Amino acid sequence: MSMPEKAQIIQVPNTLRAKVGGRLGALDNEAIAKAEAALADLSTHFETWLMDEIKKLEDVQLVIKEEGLNPINADQLFYRAHDLKGLGTTYGFPLITRISGSLCKVLDEEDKRAIAPWKLVEAHMDAIRAVVRGQIKTEDHPVGKVLTETLEARVKEHLEAHNLMTT
């Protein structure tokens, strides 16, 4: 029986520093100013874009009212809520992110969608519209705080009643 060969360790040189030019240089204040100006210019469109996303959610809501809740439009409802969850804070409405996140908890699995209480789903959509209409942007706003805490409590009750709570 022969002895196994000895292992050979190969040290790969770290060439990342050479590729990015060594140490990072000083921040380019002019580039930062241009980026901030571009973002400020884009921010004038945020509310319009947000309203476009809310309209998509409302369109699914109308389809569900006409056709009833089915797996296809329930999926669409979840994806629209999920989009709003991701965009709310970006567009300056962190409460929309929170409310949409609560709605996503009710709709994030096929089993949950099938038993989602429609009144609770609609309450989330009404809250999203109220937040935009009232320009409620901070989580410490008294109306926004009551809206979100109430919705989250109802979602928790619903999920617990159906043994659907996840960590």
Score class of each variant (00 low, 15 high):
residue 163 N to F: 14
residue 51 M to C: 07
residue 159 L to V: 00
residue 139 E to Q: 11
residue 133 R to M: 11
residue 63 V to R: 15
residue 165 M to D: 03
residue 40 A to T: 07
residue 122 E to N: 06
residue 56 K to E: 05
residue 156 K to N: 06
residue 33 A to R: 09
residue 51 M to K: 13
residue 11 Q to G: 09
residue 34 K to G: 03
residue 157 E to V: 00
residue 99 I to L: 00
residue 163 N to Q: 15
residue 7 A to D: 14
residue 151 L to S: 02
residue 17 R to T: 13
residue 130 A to C: 11
residue 57 L to M: 03
residue 136 I to S: 07
residue 17 R to N: 15
residue 64 I to E: 03
residue 124 H to C: 11
residue 110 E to P: 09
residue 149 E to M: 01
residue 91 Y to V: 05
residue 5 E to L: 02
residue 167 T to G: 14
residue 42 L to M: 04
residue 166 T to S: 15
residue 141 H to W: 06
residue 48 T to N: 06
residue 36 E to A: 02
residue 10 I to T: 15
residue 134 G to C: 10
residue 20 V to I: 14
residue 153 A to D: 00
residue 6 K to F: 06
residue 68 G to N: 03
residue 21 G to M: 11
residue 73 N to D: 10
residue 155 V to G: 01
residue 109 E to Y: 10
residue 104 C to S: 15
residue 88 G to E: 04
residue 104 C to Q: 11
residue 18 A to R: 12
residue 116 A to I: 05
residue 75 D to L: 07
residue 54 I to Y: 08
residue 98 R to L: 09
residue 118 W to V: 04
residue 117 P to W: 01
residue 119 K to Y: 07
residue 8 Q to H: 13
residue 28 D to A: 05
residue 15 T to K: 12
residue 130 A to S: 15
residue 30 E to S: 04
residue 57 L to D: 00
residue 24 L to R: 10
residue 118 W to L: 05
residue 54 I to A: 09
residue 91 Y to E: 04
residue 112 K to D: 08
residue 125 M to R: 13
residue 48 T to E: 06
residue 155 V to P: 01
residue 97 T to V: 05
residue 150 T to M: 02
residue 118 W to P: 01
residue 58 E to Q: 14
residue 158 H to A: 00
residue 75 D to T: 13
residue 19 K to T: 12
residue 75 D to S: 08
residue 165 M to H: 03
residue 49 W to K: 07
residue 12 V to H: 13
residue 87 L to P: 01
residue 99 I to Y: 05
residue 57 L to G: 03
residue 12 V to A: 13
residue 151 L to T: 03
residue 150 T to H: 02
residue 80 R to V: 03
residue 21 G to H: 11
residue 77 L to I: 03
residue 7 A to R: 14
residue 135 Q to P: 01
residue 152 E to C: 02
residue 164 L to F: 06
residue 7 A to T: 13
residue 92 G to F: 01
residue 163 N to T: 14
residue 141 H to D: 15
residue 144 G to S: 01
residue 54 I to R: 10
residue 162 H to V: 02
residue 124 H to K: 06
residue 133 R to F: 12
residue 49 W to N: 07
residue 75 D to Y: 08
residue 36 E to S: 04
residue 11 Q to M: 13
residue 83 D to T: 12
residue 125 M to T: 12
residue 74 A to C: 04
residue 103 L to T: 05
residue 83 D to K: 07
residue 2 S to P: 14
residue 102 S to M: 01
residue 136 I to W: 12
residue 70 N to S: 06
residue 62 L to M: 14
residue 54 I to T: 11
residue 143 V to N: 10
residue 12 V to K: 12
residue 53 E to S: 11
residue 104 C to I: 06
residue 21 G to T: 10
residue 154 R to E: 00
residue 54 I to W: 04
residue 61 Q to M: 12
residue 91 Y to M: 05
residue 29 N to C: 09
residue 11 Q to H: 15
residue 70 N to E: 06
residue 69 L to R: 05
residue 31 A to Y: 03
residue 165 M to T: 07
residue 67 E to K: 12
residue 34 K to C: 01
residue 28 D to K: 08
residue 69 L to W: 00
residue 97 T to Y: 06
residue 140 D to E: 10
residue 103 L to N: 02
residue 23 R to I: 13
residue 9 I to R: 10
residue 111 D to A: 15
residue 106 V to K: 05
residue 6 K to L: 12
residue 138 T to Q: 10
residue 38 A to N: 05
residue 95 L to S: 08
residue 48 T to M: 08
residue 150 T to F: 00
residue 20 V to M: 11
residue 104 C to D: 11
residue 26 A to L: 04
residue 63 V to W: 11
residue 33 A to D: 08
residue 120 L to Y: 01
